[in-house]
Write a protein that binds this DNA or RNA. Structure first.
Lengths: 150, 150
DNA sequence: GTGCTTGCAAACAGTTTGCAGATAG
DNA sequence: CTATCTGCAAACTGTTTGCAAGCAC
């Protein structure tokens, strides 16, 4: 999961093809953006980036390609209460996220001693574990500095 | 926070009044439902319960009253990716939730060794902690039994 | 050539808002 | 009496869907 953007790109394209999917220019571009992304882009952000190279690409296509990758378990969707979503194409397994409430930046922090918690809690209550989500909300260093002298 | 439904009801009404709010029959009924609720009702569920007693109450009023209680920090909103929300009128502080992906039931599980994690992670990354959210997804015992013989 | 994919536009759903009339204090 | 609250209906917003045309294989 700590592979290079290029390797991740090739992997996703190969998995799409193995599934019987067709490799269109739009799909290549969307997968490229997901593989290169340092952060957790939204559909709109992917859409705007795509438009630089393929100006006729539609937002609907972005959603459809992401949906296919989600079904394959290769993209993690972080859905928010306002109906918007952000996507992680690098690490599709549940992991903690640190979210700036001011600039909406999302990073993957290192978290200790959490791995067994979901399974332990589920078992204790008689549940079959399916997944989990752990979001920590805060103000990032840049936004703290910006708030200091507004 | 482990008070009786009646005490919680009185507390919420008193706080609404102290804020200069007016205590209408609709507000009394909505606060009653939140204070009595064992689970985490949705706006629709509150709306349906209200209608048994005050059949002219509108969904908009339910949302407006909940919004006022949220602003006062007395109700915790759990917003989901589909745009829907569930509300906890008992414990407005962030805490873990165990959510059945089949029947959507939400319970508050006991979780060990998590208290310091959000603050530790935020500090380690230079963030100012604002809050957090920890959802564990699973299939509840009742739904597991139901799935065994469909 | 076949059938998956694209792009447009309309639909969707829970929530929010504007406003006129009702009402708590 | 007057400012807040209610209820209706319309608006909002990111996402999803239906369908005809396009294109990968």
């Amino acid at each position: 999961m700590n592979q290079s953007p290029d390797a991740r790109y090739e992997e996703l394209i190969a998995k799409l093809r193995a599934r019987g999917g067709r490799i269109t220019p739009q799909r290549m571009a969307i997968v490229r953006i997901l593989a290169d992304a340092a952060g957790h882009p939204s559909a709109e952000e992917i859409y705007h980036q795509i438009r630089m190279r393929f100006p006729t690409t539609s937002l609907a296509t972005v959603y459809k390609v992401i949906a296919a990758l989600k079904e394959m378990g290769e993209v993690l969707e972080l859905g928010f209460a306002d109906g918007s979503s952000r996507y992680d194409g690098h690490n599709p397994h549940p992991h903690a996220h640190l979210i700036c409430v001011r600039c909406r930046k999302i990073v993957d922090p290192r978290v200790e001693g959490l791995n067994a918690v979901p399974q332990d809690v589920a078992r204790a209550e008689g549940y079959l574990l399916v997944g989990h989500r752990f979001d920590i909300y805060g103000v990032c260093p840049e936004c703290r500095a910006a708030e200091a002298q507004p």
